[in-house]
Each structure stands twice: as structure tokens, then as C-alpha cells.
Nucleic acid binder design. Structure first.
Lengths: 130, 130
DNA sequence: CTGAATCCCTGCCGATACTG
DNA sequence: CAGTATCGGCAGGGATTCAG
């Protein structure tokens, strides 16, 4: 509100969008959508892995040895529903399933970068005087 | 890995930092630090509110009427420990406590913007062909 | 006014075992 | 190989009550 319909539509922006002024967390808020996609342990590590290219179930399991099959499966399904990645089953034997980021999934790169930068700065200024 | 020690240190970057190659979620990873700060329902809405300037406990409660006192108190304490905001008690009666973002807290603006942009794009391309 | 203490309920996540 | 089914522990978060 208090927006004057000025001419910078290239900045859709948090402050000028009515969806930013919700009084409670709603799934339609873009920020909630993004956080929902990243929600859950291991999720960001999986995305990092897939930013390097497509991976199979086993490759992901090897990259993240502590992650259990069940949770890995859960995360991949969740990221699929969020539009972050797609599954590609290769027919034949042994069965292989490749996971690949969608274009939208690749766009999480800058998001993770923003989170990284903030977290790195937070770490640095941990015991600064305010 | 496969980084060639090239000359662009201005991009601390996710791919070139050893902390990005953890095999399990660790609290020292900057991405985890940032997500930990944003963790929890209502958190981003509180930050949005404080991006507009300092607020008292009651003002925040009025802005987010559905949020219970206990959770509001929890969130504020959590954000304080994360270095996002500081408390300022005004002596006298009635007691008032003002909450204000730290410089580091203000830097969450761009982070929320990145999340917003991604979520808005995800919303738009919800049923696109991949 | 601010915020801590308590209780309960729900959902996440890990381990294990089992199927196409 | 790539998952699903089931169970249990534990932490998140909401309602209510109490205190500085």
C-alpha cells in the first residue's frame, strides 16, 4: 500500500504486492511457496547435487550416505511436486531412474546463493557489537 | 572441486567453497544458518513487519492477530539469537519492548526478495510443459 | 504489557522390513 | 535398482494459564 503506481514494473517487489500483506502464513504467498520447496532436511543438499547435472537414485544415495532410502524417496517426490525436478525412468534392466532439475529448479541456484551469502555474513558478524 | 583458483574472489559462491560439499546437513553451512534463521511458521511475516521499522510486542500482535502470544514470544527470541533483531525495553509504565532489525536482519530483505521472485515464477509456471 | 510455563497434538524423520 | 509400508521418537507450534 501507499504505492503510487510509479513506473518501475521491472521490480515486482515484496513491498508493492498485495500478497505481501497477508496476516497469516498462506500457501499462495510466493515466499511460502519457495520455502515450502526448500522445506525439510537434506533438501538443499539434494538440489546442490542436482545443480551439477542429472543423477540416479543410487548416485544421490552415494553422495549423501547418511540419508536413508525412505527420506531420499520422500524428498525426491516432494521436489517433483514442487516443480523442481523431473524423473526419467530408463526401461530395461537394471532399472535406473534419473533425476534432473527443471528450468525452474535451476533457478534455485541464485536463491541458494542468496541464502549462502546471508548465512556467511551472519557467521562472520556473530559476536559483533550491534 | 575442479576449481582452478581463478581470479574472481568477488564471487565467494556456492560451488567453490568447501563448506558446500558436506555430506550431511551441518549447522556450520551458511545455507543452513540462513534457513535456520527463517525457520518456523510466521517468521518471515514478522521480518516483513520489522522491515518497515521497529515495532512493539503489541503492534506485532495486532499485525498478526492469529499468532498466539507464546509463538510470537518464541519467534522473537529465536530471531534475537539468530542475530536478526534486538530488543529494547523502555523503562517505566506501561512496560514497552521495541523490536528492531539489526543490520544483518535488514540484509534479509534481498533474501526474501529472492525467495519471493522464485515463488512467484513457480506459481506462474505451475502447469507448464517441462 | 510482556512473556514464561505447561499441556497436548500433530507432523517430520530415521530405522527396518518388504515389493516391482 | 528403486522404491513403498509401517512404526516410533522427538520437536514444532497452538491454547491456556501464570508471573515480572
Amino acid at each position: 500500500m501507499t504505492h503510487q503506481t510509479v513506473g518501475h514494473p521491472a521490480r515486482p517487489g515484496l513491498p508493492d504486492d498485495p500478497r505481501a500483506y497477508v496476516a497469516e502464513p498462506t500457501p499462495s504467498c510466493p515466499v511460502e511457496i519457495a520455502l515450502a520447496a526448500l522445506r525439510g532436511r537434506w533438501t538443499t543438499l539434494l538440489i546442490r547435487e542436482l545443480l551439477g547435472g542429472e543423477r540416479t537414485f543410487t548416485e544421490l544415495r552415494q553422495a549423501l550416505p547418511v540419508l536413508s532410502d525412505k527420506v531420499l524417496s520422500d524428498r525426491l517426490a516432494h521436489l517433483g511436486e514442487a516443480g523442481v525436478l523431473t524423473r526419467h525412468r530408463r526401461p530395461g534392466w537394471p532399472p535406473r531412474t534419473y533425476y534432473r532439475l527443471t528450468p525452474q529448479g535451476h533457478r534455485l541456484g541464485p536463491v541458494l546463493q542468496a541464502l549462502w551469502d546471508w548465512g556467511a555474513a551472519a557467521d562472520r558478524s556473530e559476536d559483533d557489537p550491534l
